[in-house]
Design a protein around this nucleic acid. Sequence first.
DNA 1: GTGAAAGCGCTAACAG
DNA 2: CTGTTAGCGCTTTCAC
Lengths: 334, 334
Amino acid sequence: MSEPRAATIKDVATAAGVSIATVSKFVNRQQTFSPAVEERIRAAIASLGYRQNPAARSMVTGRTQAIGLAVMDIRNPHYANIVKGANRVGMKSGYSQFVVDMEERREGVHQMLDALAMRVDGLIVSTRIPEQDMDWLANMGKPVIFVGRPMRDVIYTVRTDGYLGAGLLARYLVRQGYRRIAYAGFPLASWNEERLRGLKEVVEAEGLELQVFEVDGTVTESGERAAAHVLLRPDRPEVIVACNDQVALGFLIQARALGISIPEDVGLAGFDNIEPSRYVLPSLTTVDMRSETMGEIAMQQILAMIAGKEIARDYRLEPTLMIRQSTMRPPAGG
Amino acid sequence: MSEPRAATIKDVATAAGVSIATVSKFVNRQQTFSPAVEERIRAAIASLGYRQNPAARSMVTGRTQAIGLAVMDIRNPHYANIVKGANRVGMKSGYSQFVVDMEERREGVHQMLDALAMRVDGLIVSTRIPEQDMDWLANMGKPVIFVGRPMRDVIYTVRTDGYLGAGLLARYLVRQGYRRIAYAGFPLASWNEERLRGLKEVVEAEGLELQVFEVDGTVTESGERAAAHVLLRPDRPEVIVACNDQVALGFLIQARALGISIPEDVGLAGFDNIEPSRYVLPSLTTVDMRSETMGEIAMQQILAMIAGKEIARDYRLEPTLMIRQSTMRPPAGG
DNA sequence: GTGAAAGCGCTAACAG
DNA sequence: CTGTTAGCGCTTTCAC
């Protein structure tokens, strides 16, 4: 029923009548063997159901064959996609993946990553990190890659350019004839500033002014809570750019509740291109931030670093504008 | 810049002028110490930045302080919620979490879990498992819990009762006056049978017949692909129950494209209660399968098993019916 | 309350 | 091609 004890390399060696060193080399495919030996080892392993003990292995090699992946909120499809992408490429190379959902936690992050760090060969971080922990992270002696987060120097990053994305979106909105453009941002997010800046530059270059509002988080409920304040004011914007799709979706939900039509009464757009954006009504114009690809690249890069290769400090992906119904401005009656 | 070498317990012992055994006991809070020693150890640890090496620790204890969590598709909010719940309770107890996204993979599952098994103290599995791997899983000597999957005996499970949920939903639909009721199922899913059975029993008890269709997967696209076949037939059902919300959403999307109104022309319902179901138009009637709670409970149970406690073989949660617009039948004109 | 010593299972020289 | 051996960093008796 329950096995007495898992077979060790020693058991295999004994059963095969060879030394443990030979078994080790066999298991790690480090050389060739005489057919006889090879066969005996193979048989012994099979009959004993032997598996390498990763802990023992990593004790001597110093490598764990695991990567740590910290995200803000696995429930946000944006992060789920990052995990998915990373998982796919990691798995191909035989790496397992620790995932940690930080749940918007602001404290204890250091401690958490600290604990993780000892268990992995590298870290992919897509979380808010207190400024003071940055140096520590950068110098902890293991590869670290930030994803989706703009940072100069200090650290390696993989990201889709939010400044560029915001520019694409803003230029499109202006072309659509929108004049009163607003941004609903979440200042605590590290990517907030560049999205804001990208919008602002384009909008102001047109001689327009960007109205800026704040939301209290990055989930749909954050958008729902902020919506009334933005939608019911006398100088209501003609189009609202939310800092991400979830927030935009929150605005959408609340607009319906308030009897405000999108895009007839007000336009709406977001960032990320999560799946629901495609099928909500009206479908949501957004900037595809290539979440899954970021995850894939981040993992590739971290594996490259582990392999001792030199990689780009700042791997940048190009965002794509997804034009949908929520910004289909009705022909202006003026 | 980069530290020469991570501090070991030996370094701490030397620095504090005590033995490594003492440091070990201190770190693991296994007894009390003379104030002097305690202080010296504390100082040494702090100044050296010492952290326990988990690999070394687990070599001797045989425990890894990690749990493996295998899901079908992390992009499906249902699974993301399970991960989230599990992660939350695991973290509180100091357990890290390996997450594996199986991506609907049908082969290599054994191998994958095999590799995982050596790295964890327990496994939470929410994936399709080939029948022949069941015994192996059940007897691999480590706690295993299946989530969301009906199974008698053999193995521990945490699940929300799909049979019950289907019953709730079916009774409600009948009460709504629906007569031609259909189920769009995915036969490969382990939970498919009980959802189907739950519907069928109620429907047939009413003297009605359940139409059954098949979809080719559990994502929105699966629903989209299957929709036309179901929606355009002469004997179109009055209401369609999809095997999960994603598939239902696919039907919804495709119905729009075909110019078929929900709920006016045909009703629609799903299972899971993922977030988008609440805000699509029309909002989707569904059975809340309590994904996040399942994740929490599964982790609690696995930790209990690891602690040597006896737990329920089959932990069952009650589903809740979420009545929304997609089944708001217009007053029948007949 | 503290320390010495025996491994945990494995890899990596190094010898043969 | 195969084997011997010295640890990797830590916990755990068992003495003192």
